[in-house]
Every structure is written in structure tokens, then in C-alpha cells.
């Protein structure tokens, strides 16, 4: 996370200006224009129509479900990320490389596949499908499936933030704390956690943004039942397919807003880390 100004030099001539123009132009084209479109479309029928979208029961249900999924997936992945990073960074054990590879797997896995594996496992014709049906538990086309799909997609995000930092810090501080008489929990709370707190928060932010915005994996396992199994991204798609452009773009502004807030918080955090 080195500052972009590091190593920058002032170069005379037109080259820097041209490069800057290209970079800014590209950003305006691929990020600025879409964002502006989202806002313009959302407000095309006035602020009233824009706000009215959010009083729709289905929209509220989608927002609630999105928050619920994030509220389950993010803490679970935070706990997993801490445990995985701790074990990888501070212990030697067999299968360490395998664990590292597995953590990275979702990054290279298509989200659709991440959804599909759960269907294969828990779907009506999946491995555990009949058993689950017998027990009266619904996973696929229900909230548990959505949570599972989201978790699978976001699992590397927090662990990846923590592993390099913890590995760099080593275990000496923990060892020192133990010899000074601290118990395991005290060591974690007073030494380990404070040392990684900014990286952890950073990871949580990224994980949260991805959890709330995930479309592919969730789409496969959701079943698209309005008001029940639609998260905000799915809701946007549904409204768009219904030609409700104001509604679709209004919901999209929420997601876009989330991205902006996440980015801002990330920038502030990165300053704090440095």
C-alpha cells in the first residue's frame, strides 16, 4: 500500500499531460458515465418517484435480506479469516499450502459455480437434498442458501488481508505476552487483535461490500421469490426486467452508494494504517 506519489517525478513535455488525459478520460467513460446514468435514470421521474421505490414492500424486503445476509456472512468470514490467518502465519503444520490455496480458490472461481455447488449439495436432487427435505429444512431457494453462496464468494477477502500482516509480525509478541503470564484470550484481545485491527477492518469493509453486492452466486441459489429470497442486486435485475427503470436505478443507487462509502472508508483506513 505504497502511496502513488512515491517515486513520482516531474517530467517536462506533453507526455504527462496526455497520459493524465487518457487515464481520466477512461475513468470518466467506464466509471463516471455509468454512475451518472444510474443517478440520472433514478431521478428521471422526480425525487418523489425515486423515494417511492423504497417504500415498496418488495424493495424493503430486499434491503432487509441483503443486510441480514451481510450480517451473517461478514462476521463468520471475519472469524474464519482470523483463525485461518492466525494458524497460517504463526504455526507450522502439514497442509498449510493446501489451506492457502483453498482460501484463494473462490477468487478464481466463477460466482455462478459458487452458487451451483450448493445446489449440487443441498438442492432437491443434490447429495443431501432428500435428507434435508425429510427434516423439513430448506436451503436452496431460501435464505440459508443465499448466505452460503455469499460466504463462499467472500471467504478469501478478510483472510487475505490478515495473512501477510500476521506473517510479517511473527509470533514473538504473543510468546512474550505468554511468558509475562497472559492467558490465551488475553493474548488475543490485548496483543494479536490490536496489531491487526486496521487490516481486519479493511477486510471487513471489502467483504461487506462484496457480500451486499454479490449477484451471480446468489442468483443461482435464490429462486428469485419476490419479497422473500431477493437481495438488492437481484431486486434491481427483477425491476429492470419489468421495465421499472426508475425503481431499478433507484435501488442501484443504493448499491452504488455503498460502493462509494466503502471506498471512502477504505481510503481513510489506509491513511490510518500508514
Amino acid at each position: 500500500m505504497s502511496s502513488p506519489s512515491v517515486g513520482a517525478r516531474r517530467v517536462a513535455g506533453p507526455v504527462p499531460g496526455i497520459l493524465l488525459a487518457v487515464a481520466l478520460g477512461w475513468l470518466a467513460l467506464v466509471i463516471g458515465a455509468p454512475l451518472a446514468t444510474v443517478l440520472a435514470q433514478a431521478l428521471s421521474k422526480g425525487v418523489g418517484a425515486f423515494l417511492a421505490t423504497f417504500s415498496e414492500p418488495d424493495a424493503l424486503a430486499a434491503i432487509r435480506l441483503t443486510l441480514l445476509v451481510a450480517a451473517i456472512a461478514v462476521p463468520l468470514n471475519a472469524a474464519f479469516g482470523l483463525a485461518a490467518a492466525w494458524s497460517i502465519a504463526k504455526f507450522e503444520f502439514r497442509g498449510k499450502t493446501l489451506l492457502l490455496t483453498l482460501i484463494d480458490l473462490p477468487l478464481s472461481l466463477s460466482p455462478v459455480v459458487a452458487g451451483l455447488v450448493w445446489v449440487l449439495l443441498f438442492g432437491a436432487r443434490g447429495w443431501f437434498g432428500p435428507w434435508l427435505e425429510g427434516a423439513g429444512i430448506k436451503v436452496i431457494f431460501a435464505v440459508p442458501g443465499i448466505v452460503l453462496g455469499t460466504i463462499l464468494v467472500t471467504v478469501p477477502l478478510i483472510a487475505r488481508e490478515l495473512i501477510p500482516l500476521m506473517a510479517e509480525q511473527g509470533a514473538d509478541e504473543e510468546l512474550a505476552a505468554i511468558t509475562l503470564g497472559a492467558g490465551g484470550w488475553t493474548v488475543f484481545r490485548r496483543v494479536t487483535l490490536p496489531n491487526v485491527r486496521w487490516a481486519l477492518l479493511h477486510g471487513v469493509l471489502l467483504c461487506n461490500a462484496r457480500a451486499m453486492g454479490e449477484f451471480g452466486a446468489v442468483s443461482v441459489v435464490s429462486g428469485h421469490i419476490r419479497g422473500l429470497t431477493e437481495t438488492l442486486p437481484l431486486h434491481v435485475e427483477a425491476l429492470y426486467n419489468d421495465y421499472d427503470f426508475v425503481g431499478a436505478f433507484a435501488a442501484a443507487t443504493l448499491l452504488a452508494g455503498l460502493a462509494v462509502v466503502t471506498l471512502a472508508a477504505k481510503t481513510v483506513l489506509e491513511r490510518a494504517i500508514r
Partner: peptide, 19 residues
């Protein structure tokens, strides 16, 4: 256990609690 031994341990890289 290491915790119960009441020994003082000083490391080469200090291992001070950085925060």
C-alpha cells in the same frame, strides 16, 4: 506452562507490543 513459570524472556528482535 510458559505462562506459569514466571520467567523473563528477552528476544533478539525485542518483541515489544507495538501498539
Amino acid at each position: 506452562s510458559a505462562r506459569e513459570r514466571r520467567i523473563g524472556l528477552v528476544f533478539q528482535q525485542y518483541a515489544l507490543f507495538r501498539h
